[in-house]
Every structure is written in structure tokens, then in C-alpha cells.
């Protein structure tokens, strides 16, 4: 039983969540905010707006929860899909803004672990620079698979596409990145030899 002990059962928890019971909302956030945060970071990379987007995901989720027809076990996949949808919206929002206002890319330093090696932080920044050049429909399966390290089936379920389509998009994304990476010898070297530490 994963739901908090003060709810009679999972159904009672979901009912309470749909009624915005404070305890249920708090438990809902505590249980899934890491999942949401990780998915947003995986899709968007180091991004200073991640906390705002986490709030947006939960706000969307709580607004949609009265229409949720699944069971407790399906909540994680459901809110992960909302996170992916929110991240995709953010990508498109930014692309549109850049097209019209030459807005600078989002700040990223605050997201990274200050304890992380500067070499790794740099390599990851370079990787996301390339990843941003992928089409969204390839970018999202690719980061969920490589960064978030989801299983193929999970990627397919989260993106709501078939397994075959998932594999095809991953293959296409890797081939595209292989071509783009040739312009960044530092990243190529890093991906070939791995972390020096």
C-alpha cells in the first residue's frame, strides 16, 4: 500500500485528491515531484525555470485530476506525461519567442549541482546544445531514454507512441546527433573516452 496511512485505501486517496484535500495534495506532491523535476530536467536540460514548470505541471494535474479515470498505480505515468507535455509546450514557447524577439537561452547554472565537475557540466551543456537542434518529436524520446534512462516501453508510454516508432525516432535522433557532433570535438572526445574522473 503506497498511499498514506491516513487514507482508507487508494480509491479514498484519489477521491480526496479530486476534492483537493490538503493532505492528499501534499502527499501527491511529495510522492511525484522528483519524478516531475527529473523529467523536466531531462527534456529541457539545466534550466532555471524548472521549479516554475514543476508548479505548472502540478497545477495542470490538479486541474485535470477530476477527469482521471486510472488507478493509483497509473498516477506516476499520468503525471510524467503531463510533465512531458509541459516541457514540449515550453520548448515551442521558447522557439517562438526566439524567432520573434532574439531572446537569450534560459539560464542554466542554478540547476546544476555545485559539487559537479566543471568538465562534466561543460560536456552536458554541449550535449544539450546539440540536443536542442533535434526535432521535438525525436528530442523527447531521446532524452527520456538517455538522460532519464527510461526503458523503451516507458518512453513509448510516456510519449504515447508505439514501441516501433520510439525505436525509429531514437535511431534517427542518434544519427542526427552523430552528424551535428562533428562540429564539437570536445563533446565527441568526451563521449568516446567517457568521464576522466
Amino acid at each position: 500500500m503506497s498511499h498514506p496511512a491516513f487514507f482508507r485505501d487508494e480509491t479514498a486517496f484519489l477521491d480526496a485528491l479530486k476534492q483537493r484535500h490538503t493532505g492528499a495534495v501534499g502527499y501527491f506532491f511529495d510522492r511525484y515531484h522528483r519524478r516531475v523535476d527529473r523529467t523536466l530536467c531531462a527534456v529541457l536540460g539545466p534550466d532555471a525555470e524548472i521549479p516554475d514548470l514543476v508548479q505548472e505541471v502540478f497545477t495542470r494535474a490538479l486541474a485535470s485530476i477530476p477527469r482521471f479515470r486510472g488507478d493509483f498505480a497509473q498516477l506516476e505515468g499520468w503525471i510524467t506525461r503531463i510533465a512531458v507535455y509541459t516541457a514540449r509546450t515550453q520548448i515551442r514557447r521558447r522557439r517562438t519567442a526566439r524567432r520573434w524577439t532574439s531572446q537569450a537561452p534560459a539560464e542554466e547554472s542554478s540547476v546544476a549541482d555545485p559539487q559537479a565537475s566543471p568538465e562534466i557540466v561543460d560536456a552536458l551543456r554541449r550535449a544539450y546544445t546539440l540536443i536542442e537542434r533535434l526535432p521535438v518529436k525525436e528530442r523527447i524520446p531521446f532524452v527520456l531514454r538517455t538522460m532519464d534512462q527510461m526503458k523503451l516501453e516507458e518512453v513509448a508510454a510516456t510519449c504515447e507512441i508505439s514501441l516501433a516508432t520510439t525505436k525509429r525516432r531514437l535511431k534517427s535522433a542518434r544519427a542526427r546527433l552523430d552528424r551535428h557532433a562533428q562540429s564539437d570535438p570536445v563533446l565527441v572526445d568526451w563521449l568516446r573516452r567517457g568521464p576522466s574522473s
Binding site: R34, P46, M147, R174, L191
Partner: peptide, 24 residues
């Protein structure tokens, strides 16, 4: 197949971003 080992990105992501959750 791909020339580069993209599976190396996962651990790097964990060390840089996921671990940064504490900072957030």
C-alpha cells in the same frame, strides 16, 4: 550504428542535474 556512446549521458545527467534537486 551511432559513432558516439550516448549512454554515457545518463550518469552525467544524474551527477549534474538530478543531484541538483537538493539545491532546488
Amino acid at each position: 550504428g551511432p559513432l558516439l556512446d550516448y549512454d554515457r549521458l545518463g550518469p552525467m545527467f544524474d551527477r549534474v542535474v538530478a543531484d541538483g534537486q537538493q539545491r532546488r
